[in-house]
Design a protein around this nucleic acid. Structure first.
Lengths: 258, 258
DNA sequence: CACGGAACCAATTGCCAATTGGTTCGAGGT
DNA sequence: ACCTCGAACCAATTGGCAATTGGTTCCGTG
């Protein structure tokens, strides 16, 4: 931010001194710098001057600081977690369906390519369970289990993590009730049939057919959701339904990592 | 686990008592149950008997417990975070490339469909930056920025989160050095050209071409990585290289969510 | 007016005690 | 001899407190 020329002499002197220190400590295990107050006293300058120098070094990416933690050499480490709440907040329900329609057919294709006989057996069992369940909760549970099993059979643990990421956003309680409104006996019957078709394609190792069947299934689910969202909600007994709307998505605010 | 018939009488009595309690408190805001010791005293039974009953209820999914936290009514809440370290640990480098080859071409296709003129301008600028950079670190940085920009232009915030998930695993320090070994002037020249082709396809809104160009690019990257991993590593000065191998992936251990 | 020092604010860490579910072991009764 | 129960112990979590540390504001000094 601040051009070098505008820095006071003391800060510039500190900068040179610090660069030398960083160079020397680059191969050391001591990646932590002394506290600002101590470091300022060591160099023999004031804290404001030191902070101006550190500001430059941080902008250059040579160090990183955090209140309460300290000052460290090297690039800022990426956070070891992904905040699901943040992701959920930014994501529109239709975006979830779009993402599923891109990811899950691909997983079905991979599953068809890599499924063992035991895998197929498991998928068939799950598909049957989906059909046998009578209460809505049970069906939803087995449905979810089937989709995840396909993702597992695909045999790529990173893509499985991707599936879980999408799935967790999908199971956010705010959208849970949105799906409940889309449920119906007729639609459930069709779901069961579509599931059977996907599993059958995987069982016969027909990758393209599995991908197509899954895409068709999700397309149907998507249409159901769209219809619910388009129709004027008659049963407006839920004040929280406003929160499910969030219609806008400014690209400038699409930021997850550093 | 334990069949109901094998439970002692006291536990069965506690079970009935607890079911009634759960039924009554289902609509209350008090989702937390008293500590086991207190609850046992209230009901008038011993803690072992109470715990057997709670074990059943937990297996049924009506309550969930955690050491140090307490016992709560309802389904176990999903963790609000994804542990990147866990994901990294389970994932083989080639799985990362496979995942990228599935995801990023799709993002390039979506980007071609949804790019604004401003978006295209930005992508062109980034592609040029990649070509202009001379030091290896700078190139890697701009390369990463270009790939992410494409993911942003795709316009689906959930798929952007998916991209970030994969990207963070990719940037794990263990594999960083793997990529460093694959670098070469010749390959970098080709990368630049492939990037240009992807951006050009997006600029002309040719979705299929963009997808194809990105797939070709990643296929090239993947081959480079594969060659490095296949060749006997001459410079075996890194004892940690063993950790990058992890060749096996037992499907039984593929579990992320509940 | 500009720079520097001091004081204050806010976030983080480490520590300790209390709480709570999980486990083990022995007493006591059938 | 076996099973059940109570007690003690173990381990994980929470909350509060003090100390540390980067971030900010304010005022004195030259």
């Amino acid at each position: 931010m601040a051009p070098l020329d505008t820095l006071p002499d003391s800060s510039n002197a500190a900068l040179e001194r610090l660069r030398a220190l960083l160079e020397a400590a680059s191969s050391q295990k001591e990646q932590r710098l002394p506290p600002e107050r101590v470091l300022a006293a060591q160099i023999g300058i004031g804290r404001p001057a030191l902070r101006r120098a550190l500001e430059v070094l941080e902008a250059e990416g040579r160090i990183w600081r955090h209140q309460g933690k300290g000052t460290f050499i090297g690039p800022r480490p990426s956070e070891p977690h992904i905040d699901m709440e943040e992701v959920s907040k930014r994501t529109h329900p239709l975006e979830v369906m779009d993402a599923r329609m891109e990811i899950e057919p691909m997983l079905a294709r991979l599953a068809a390519l890599r499924a063992s006989n035991g895998d197929v057996e498991r998928l068939v069992r799950l598909a049957n369970k989906t059909a046998e369940s009578f209460d809505a909760d049970g069906r939803e549970l087995w449905d979810s289990a089937l989709h995840r099993a396909i993702a597992e059979v695909a045999g790529n643990s990173l893509l499985l993590a991707v599936f879980d990421l999408i799935n967790r956003v999908r199971q956010d309680r705010t959208w849970q009730q949105l799906r409940e409104r889309a449920r119906s006996e007729e639609r459930q019957r069709i779901y069961v049939e579509q599931h059977r078709r996907v599993v059958a394609a995987v069982a016969q190792r027909e990758a393209a057919a599995a991908e197509g069947a899954m895409r068709e299934h999700l397309s149907f689910v998507r249409d159901g959701l769209l219809r619910i969202m388009t129709h004027s909600q008659v049963g407006g007994d839920d004040p929280h339904s406003v929160e499910t709307t969030m219609p806008f998505n400014d690209k400038k605010e699409l930021q997850h990592g550093t």
